[in-house]
Nucleic acid binder design. Structure first.
Length: 777
DNA sequence: CCCCTGTTCGTTTTT
DNA sequence: CGAACAGGGG
């Protein structure tokens, strides 16, 4: 292996450059702190990188520097991230900066790197190298089975809750024997601890690991097998960790073990992060890890990156002032050299959340008229229930938007079904996959048949597929089921055989066809079936780049996100959490009301720590803006169906007054002023001015008028106008499409006559409406 | 076995 | 108020 071979000295070019004291090109343009962070390769290093201070550039340049100076082979560098997105971004940049690589650095998420290590030493943690990685779905089903076996009432003790506890334990690095009695005793009247043991035992039988296990079993591997750990100590000369503030205890232990090859004060470990952007405490992240780094690694060098290249001075001032209210920070203050402070932050209080949506819509259109692209604008909300009103408003306006988040591609039912087939082909012992597809499509194999198979599997201690093989040779099954199962087993054997020679993307197509899955979708007249077929095509396309089935399955279980390659110009709507790491010229921060943001629940559950995390979220939100940040709050918002009034977020009071401009859409209803009514002077002359006269509303009306022509609003008149407008163009809707209507809500198209559509609305029943009144749902 | 109805519950999300 | 889910009935 190249890892241990002596490193050649840098080639001619760099040496000459050094003699002339010319720095390598890649250092050009870095500020002194960034340069320091790149060049300090030896010993522990903590880089505190504030928002927009060029963190990613430092990380990648640092790796490029190591490779360029031949400090290490590529494969001796370990770079860890939290998300696949960050990992692939890093890979891309390294490839750009270092065209010829001697061995690829290990770049990936904690989980993918752990999986890679575990596959090499699987036997040492009672797994086979081909072990399956379970997703949340499988996990829940497995837990349900255990609950049933233990006679635990699933209503009283939901599987999801236990999954959450398991996750929390694993995040804390706790094996079943390590769980404190108080913790394990809580669930199902003391059965929690036993369930954890049972769960782990079951995973071993299934030859499977869940996400938490990837880390936990890796830790166990290192602890119980010092010689294996030593191997990695020799291997990894340099370690880098991105977003260190997001690391949880298990990840921390994992890193500590890997860094133990040298005394702590000499470990070449570089962690990059920002304690002010730690927003994942609720899922186990320990800000403490970053706060403690200097004592964990004595003599660690600390470099602060505070020079911001993203936002205006006003934005930075606002963010810095708010975050300064937190205690227990390492302390950084962002600054910029740009003289112009830029627009002040705006804060607007409106009457209710509907008006907030109108306001945002209007402002977006205004900026758009000024030549800003929709892509450069984003609305960041605390929770996704806030998105709906925005979306509805934008539909009315005909404003193109994109929602980030939501259900992911690989979590869709049809994709999971297809994956289950593939898993079972690759891994005949994958019982969870077996159970998932045994009767999908319907084969007349109901609960009773499955129960018989399960019983045999238990008895014989074999996987379900093997149990099925045995059962079809006996007289225990009804003839019909026996034939069906015999054929199914034969099919799987056949597919497994083909998997050896056929590219995975062709295999999946054949499986879906031969299993009857495609026929099932074809027979399905529901709205979704067409989309499902397309998703499956997309799956096959995504598989084209994989040569082996195993390679694809590994990728899929670790990379659950789909890359949105949406080229159209659209405003982004997303949560503050998913906005971390992104930037936009204009950022709208809506719903800044106490209770919504900061979230009441956070404060109730986690007290002061909760509030501080919310404040960091505010900091993240504000620092997403390059040119302008527009904050709003509603006096009234509908929560759980009822209207509730609220006062502006306490974070509003924490904003620096001289960087903020308060405007008020004077409401006729009085309500709460800002800062004791200081904003009242901004009230409009006529407090009763109708909101329906706002530019946005007028435009919405104009849009609708354009779409339907200027004829009378009768069916007939409209029909004529439409047919003229559209010429020969046919309806852009199809039977079964899910659509949205302003008054009637969501519905499904039952029939189409010209532009007259019969729609079955979920709420309002079946109505005939004009195409121009609906939009795609 | 599927559909319908009643019930429950109501941040944030990755791997 | 409305989505999601479980359980019962047809």
């Amino acid at each position: 292996m190249a890892d241990t071979a002596p490193l050649p000295r840098p080639q001619g070019g760099p040496i000459t450059s050094q003699l002339h004291r010319r720095e390598p090109d890649y250092l050009a343009g870095l500020n002194p702190e960034q340069r320091d962070a790149v060049l300090t390769t030896e010993g522990p290093l903590l880089v505190l990188a504030g928002a927009g201070t060029g963190k990613t550039r430092v990380l990648t340049t640092r790796i490029a520097h190591m490779l360029n100076q031949r400090l290490a082979w590529g494969s001796q560098i370990l770079a860890v991230t939290f998300t696949n997105k960050a990992a692939s971004e890093m890979k891309k940049r390294i490839h750009e900066q270092v065209p010829s690589l001697d061995g690829l650095p290990w770049m990936g998420t904690f989980h993918s790197i752990s999986a890679r290590i575990l596959r090499q030493h699987a036997e040492l943690v009672d797994l086979k190298p081909t072990f399956t990685i379970l997703d949340t779905d499988d996990q829940i089903r497995l837990i349900k089975q255990l609950l049933e076996a233990e006679n635990i009432d699933e209503k009283r003790w939901p599987a999801r809750q236990f999954a959450g506890m398991l996750d929390a334990w694993k995040n804390r690095g706790l094996l079943p024997k390590d769980v404190p009695a108080a913790d394990s005793g809580y669930f199902a009247n003391g059965k929690g601890g036993k369930l954890y043991y049972d769960y782990q035992a079951r995973l071993k039988v299934l030859n499977a690991a869940d996400f938490g296990d990837l880390l936990l079993e890796c830790i166990r591997l290192f602890r119980e097998n010092p010689e294996v750990l030593a191997e990695y100590h020799r291997k990894f000369k340099y370690m880098l960790v991105d977003e260190y503030q997001d690391s949880n205890t298990a990840q921390y232990l994992w890193l500590r073990l890997l860094a133990q090859g040298k005394p702590a004060s000499e470990a070449n470990i570089c962690v990059v992060g920002d304690d002010d952007q730690s927003i994942y405490g609720w899922r186990g992240a320990e800000v403490d890890n970053i706060l403690r780094f200097e004592s964990d690694f004595p003599g660690a060098k600390v470099i602060k990156l505070e020079r911001n290249y993203r936002s205006t001075a006003n934005i930075l001032k606002a963010a810095s002032t708010v975050i300064a209210f937190n205690e227990g920070r390492l302390g950084k203050t962002l600054f910029t050299d740009v003289a112009d402070a830029g627009e002040p932050i705006s804060f607007t209080q409106v009457y209710d959340s509907e008006e907030e949506a109108r306001l945002v819509g209007e402002e977006i259109e205004q900026y758009q008229r000024q030549g800003e692209s929709l892509n450069s604008m984003a609305i960041l909300v605390r929770a996704s229930f806030q998105m709906r009103e925005l979306e509805e408003r934008f539909i009315t306006l005909g404003l193109n938007y994109r929602v980030v988040g939501g259900p992911r591609f690989y979590e869709r039912k049809e994709i999971r079904d297809a994956l289950a087939y593939l898993r079972l082909v690759a891994q005949p012992a994958d019982d969870l996959a077996f159970e998932r597809i045994i009767n999908v499509p319907k084969r007349g194999l109901g609960d009773s048949t499955v129960n018989m198979l399960t019983a045999t599997a238990r008895h014989q201690q074999v996987p379900l597929l093997s149990a099925t093989r045995l059962m079809v040779e006996t007289e225990d099954l009804k003839p019909k089921q026996r034939t069906t199962l015999r054929n199914l087993v034969a099919q799987f054997d056949n597919w497994a055989h083909r998997a050896e020679s056929l590219p995975p993307y062709q295999l999946v197509e054949q499986i879906l066809e031969e299993s009857g899955y495609m026929d099932m979708l074809a027979a399905d007249k529901s709205v979704e079936s067409q989309g499902r077929k397309e998703n499956l095509k997309e799956l096959s396309r995504a598989m084209e780049e994989f040569e082996t089935l195993g390679g694809f399955l590994e990728h899929i279980s670790l990379v659950m996100d789909r890359d949105n390659a949406d080229a159209s110009d659209a405003v982004t709507i997303m949560t503050l959490h998913s906005a971390k790491g992104l930037e936009f010229n204009t950022v709208f921060l809506t719903g800044w009301e106490d209770g919504t943001f900061p979230s009441q629940r956070s404060m109730d559950e986690s007290g002061r720590a909760g509030l501080e995390e919310e404040r960091r979220l505010a900091y993240v939100g504000i620092t997403r803006g390059r040119k302008r940040v527009r904050i709003s709050a509603a006096q009234n918002r509908r929560i759980h169906g009822l209207w509730q009034s609220a006062i502006p977020s306490r974070f509003i009071d924490e904003l620096p007054p001289d960087a903020v401009e308060v405007t008020d859409r004077g409401s006729a209803y009085g309500g709460y002023g800002y800062g004791g009514g200081a904003a009242s002077r901004f009230n409009k002359a006529d407090p009763f001015e109708s909101v329906y006269e706002t530019p946005g509303w007028q435009r919405a009306r104009a849009n609708q008028a354009n779409r339907r022509g200027s004829g009378p609003l009768t069916i007939e008149g409209d029909l004529v106008a439409r047919s003229v407008d559209l010429g020969n163009q046919s309806s852009s809707y199809a039977l079964g499409d899910r659509v949205f209507h302003l008054k009637f809500g969501y519905g499904e198209i039952m029939s189409i006559e010209g532009n007259k559509l019969t729609i079955d609305f979920e709420k309002a029943g079946t109505k005939k409406v004009l195409e121009s009144f609906i939009s795609k749902g």
